[in-house]
Amino acid sequence: MDFHCHLDLYPNAREVYREACLRNTFTWLVTTSPKAFEATSRVLGASPKVLITPGLHPEVAQQKVGELDLLLEQMAGVKAVGEVGIDGSSRHRASFELQCSIFRAVVERSKSLGGRTLSIHSRQAVNEVLNELHCQPGYGTAVLHWFTGTATELRTADRMGCWFSVGPAMFTSGNGRAIAARLPRNRVVPESDGPFAKIDGKSVLPWSAERTAKCLADVWLVPLDEAQKLLADNSLRLLNLMEVC
């Protein structure tokens, strides 16, 4: 399974899509904008094994803010939304307030619809993301993608019941491995974040869950089969929460 993948953005997207349908029981294809969601849904088509969801990536907030109303409209017809969130890195500081207002609108809309599962980007903005979620109880389920926050922020996210999607590229740094070791083991699911996530210069592919299990087994100091079972059990529980299976 893969709970966060930009499958539509691989250079050979159709081929990767077909292969993911063969190899994975579930792939969550997150899009970067509402119009990208429409185009991807049209070009790649529907599959019971691939969930395509609308999003508005914080890195393109300035370029895509005009599509926010479309996203809020699309949310009525889906059970999950992504990629959304806030990016507090220096590269995107100029749009920070705009990002926050967009994410707030998404979370408010999620609550008004009875709850949605959100795949959330929170680079250098974990506190802001968690504050928005805290202000809207009933928003649904948060899946923090590639979490890079502090130990204190992780404890807060854990107390709030957030889930965490992690992929093999997270384990290429010491900080990533240290964070993964502290994640709540009952709320971790696999992701690839391909094609953006890379290892040795090569994009991680959507069928990387086995590699993620091996990485988690190493940092959790458990046998591989135990890590595999945890990921499998967690994945099924999250799918039930998402109501997409």
Rank of each mutant, 00 (worst) to 15 (best):
L205T: 15
S101E: 15
Q62V: 13
S89P: 02
E243L: 00
Q136K: 09
M170A: 14
L9R: 15
E15S: 10
V204D: 09
F26V: 09
D8A: 08
G45Y: 00
I199V: 15
P11W: 08
L133R: 02
N175S: 07
E108G: 13
V16S: 10
S110N: 07
E132L: 08
V50N: 01
I86F: 04
D225T: 13
D8P: 05
K35Q: 11
R182M: 14
R116D: 06
N175W: 01
G149E: 00
A217E: 04
S203Y: 02
E73S: 12
I52Y: 05
F196D: 06
N12T: 14
A20T: 08
A142C: 00
G82N: 06
D2N: 06
K198F: 09
I120A: 01
R104N: 12
R104G: 03
T172E: 15
G201Y: 14
R155M: 12
L230H: 11
F37M: 03
L230V: 11
F26S: 06
V166K: 00
R187C: 09
F26L: 12
R155E: 14
S119L: 05
V43A: 02
H6R: 07
L130A: 10
V244C: 02
K35Y: 05
G88Q: 03
V166P: 02
L51W: 13
C135D: 15
F96A: 07
T212C: 10
F164Y: 05
V166C: 05
S112G: 12
L56V: 01
V222S: 10
E191K: 06
A227G: 05
L224Y: 12
V81E: 01
T53C: 05
W207E: 04
H92T: 07
L70N: 00
W163M: 05
L221R: 15
N240Q: 10
L238D: 11
A232Q: 14
T172K: 11
N234E: 07
R159Y: 04
V143G: 11
P48M: 08
G174V: 13
D233Y: 10
L118D: 03
F147V: 04
L51S: 08
G114T: 14
F26W: 07
T152F: 10
G82I: 02
S235P: 12
N186K: 14
I86L: 07
F164I: 01
V107E: 04
E210W: 08
L44D: 02
S165W: 03
V84F: 04
L238T: 03
M170K: 13
E243S: 01
P48F: 03
L230F: 09
A39M: 01
A169M: 12
S192F: 06
V188A: 06
Q62T: 13
L22W: 12
V204I: 13
I199S: 05
F37K: 04
R18N: 10
N234I: 14
A94F: 01
M75H: 09
P223S: 10
A20Q: 09
N127A: 13
S192M: 10
L236Q: 15
G161M: 02
T40S: 03
R187T: 05
S41G: 13
E83C: 01
R14D: 11
S203L: 09
Q74N: 10
V204H: 06
Q62Y: 11
Q136N: 10
L130M: 06
R182S: 11
V107G: 02
Y10E: 08
R116N: 09
A157G: 07
R211F: 01
K35M: 01
Y10N: 08
M160K: 13
C100P: 09
R91C: 02
L238A: 09
N24F: 08
L144V: 10
